[in-house]
Write a protein that binds this DNA or RNA. Structure first.
Lengths: 149, 149
DNA sequence: TTCAATCTGTTGTATAAACAACAAATTGCC
DNA sequence: GGCAATTTGTTGTTTATACAACAGATTGAA
C-alpha cells in the first residue's frame, strides 16, 4: 500500500519493451529475437533497454513473472471453474517458451527458466491453498514437474 | 522526406494526450473536460501538457487537424465510393464537436474551429480535385458552409 | 455574494530517455 | 577457417518528462 510510486516514464517504457517482446514472440522463435528487434518495435532507444534490463534473458524472466502474476491476480477474482482455462493458457505459453528456447542453449538457460516458473507457481499455489480448493492444482504441479524435468 | 525526425518521446507523449482527449470526448461534453482530466487519463504530468499545447483549445485545434489529415491520407489509398463513408464520419464528428462546443462560448471560439475545419477541408478538396472526381464534393462543401454559418 | 475547492498556467530542479559513438562479441556466408 | 556485417554492451551528453510548489482564475454550493 505504501509503495514509493514508480516513475510513470519507467512504467511506460517497461510496458512498451515487454509488449514488443511478447508481440515478437508470436512471430519469431525466441532465439531469433534480438534486442535491436525489440527496441525498434517498441520505438525505444536501445540504450534505454539496458537501463531496465541486463540482457534479453533478464527481460524474459521479468516478462514471465509478470505474465504469471497478472494471470494470478486476474484469476483471484474469478472462481474455481474458470481458473482451469487460465491455467491451461499459462501452461501452454510456458511450454511454447520452453520449446522455442531449447535451441538457444547459451549458458544452460533452461535452469533459470525452470527456476522462475517454479518460484511463481509456488506463490500461485500458496495463494490458492489459502482459498481452500486443493485437488486439481496438485495435478498441475505434477505436470509442471514433468515438463521441467 | 528530409524531415529533422522528431524525438520519439515527443511523438509518444502527443499521441497519449490526443488519444486521451478523444477518449474523454466520447464520455463527456467538451466543456466538461479539464486539462487535469486529460493528463490523468494519459498518465502524463500536467506540466508536460503545457510543453506541447498552449491550452485546451490549442489541443482541440491540433486534434481536429490531425483527425482530418489522417482520414485524408487514409482515403487517398481507397477510391471514390468508400470515401463517401469516411466523409460522413468526419462530418458527424465535426458536427458533434460543434454541438458540444456551443455552450462554452469562451472567447468566441466557434470562429477558430470553423477556420481550422475550412482550412483542412480546403486542402482535402484541393487534393481531391487533382484526382479528377468533382461532383459529390461540391455538395459536401455546401453542407459544411451551412453547418458553420 | 462569499468562501472553499478545484483547476490553470508557470517555474525550478531531478531524473529518465534519446542519441551518437565505440570496442568487443556474434552471426552468417564463402 | 576467415571475413564482412550485424548485434551487443557501455559511456557521455543533450533533451523531454516528472514532480513539487506557487499565485491567480474558475467553479459551485451555502
Amino acid at each position: 500500500m505504501t509503495q514509493p510510486k514508480t516513475d510513470p516514464r519507467v512504467l511506460r517504457t517497461r510496458k512498451l519493451i515487454m509488449n514488443s517482446f511478447i508481440e515478437l514472440s508470436g512471430k519469431k522463435e525466441f532465439k531469433d529475437i534480438t534486442i535491436k528487434d525489440i527496441t525498434t518495435e517498441a520505438m525505444i532507444n536501445r540504450a534505454t533497454f539496458y537501463y531496465h534490463f541486463e540482457d534479453i534473458y533478464d527481460l524474459l524472466e521479468k516478462v514471465l513473472s509478470e505474465v504469471l502474476l497478472v494471470n494470478l491476480n486476474y484469476d483471484t477474482y474469478e472462481n474455481d471453474e474458470l481458473n482451469e482455462e487460465a491455467f491451461v493458457r499459462i501452461f501452454t505459453a510456458i511450454t511454447n517458451f520452453q520449446k522455442s528456447l531449447s535451441n538457444r542453449c547459451h549458458r544452460g538457460y533452461e535452469d533459470t527458466i525452470g527456476r522462475i516458473i517454479r518460484e511463481q507457481l509456488e506463490i500461485i499455489f500458496y495463494k490458492m491453498l489459502l482459498k481452500q480448493n486443493r485437488r486439481e492444482h496438485d495435478e498441475s504441479l505434477k505436470i509442471t514437474s514433468v515438463i521441467l524435468s
